[in-house]
């Protein structure tokens, strides 16, 4: 419940028009990978902390808080089939309501799977807490 931390690299973000879907997320990850390659920018090293409250992102070099994504804003998470070291989630931007797909490069496929499974557990715990609160 207190959360788990993973060291990943943020590869990028792209807008999507649906909150979930295998084809949709695969296409989004493909776009992010292509853009990152085109730009040739090294993916930013981040620390991703997962808990039933949501996902918190810190810049690993400066320890600066990058983003605090509430669990209620995250619609979906996945490990991409083609890029199996890539973990991605789709979240709604609170400012403008747009749906963003964020993709992260993990050191190994197992790490990507561990992150996805941990986020899924956070979804489940958050749902149980939400039902109690209701």
């Amino acid at each position: 419940v207190e959360g788990m931390t993973f060291n990943l690299r943020h590869l990028g973000m792209t807008l999507v028009d649906q909150p979930k879907g295998e084809e949709l997320s695969a296409a989004a990850v493909k776009r992010i990978v292509a853009t990152a390659k085109a730009i040739g920018k090294k993916p930013k090293k981040v620390t991703l902390k997962v808990s039933p409250r949501g996902i918190v992102l810190y810049d690993r070099l400066t320890n600066k808080l990058l983003e605090n994504v509430s669990i209620y804003r995250i619609s979906y998470c996945t490990v991409d089939k083609q890029h199996d070291k890539m973990f991605a989630y789709i979240a709604q931007n609170t400012l403008n309501g747009t749906l963003e797909c964020h993709a992260y490069l993990c050191s190994k496929r197992k790490v990507a799977q561990a992150v996805a499974l941990t986020v899924a557990q956070a979804f489940t715990v958050a749902f149980e807490l939400w039902q109690v609160a209701k």
Partner: peptide, 18 residues
């Protein structure tokens, strides 16, 4: 081939405040 791992969030857009 390994199938994708994906999870939908049951609390997406559900907030306790409203």
């Amino acid at each position: 081939n390994t199938n994708t791992i994906h999870f939908d969030n049951p609390v997406y857009q559900k907030t306790t405040e409203d």
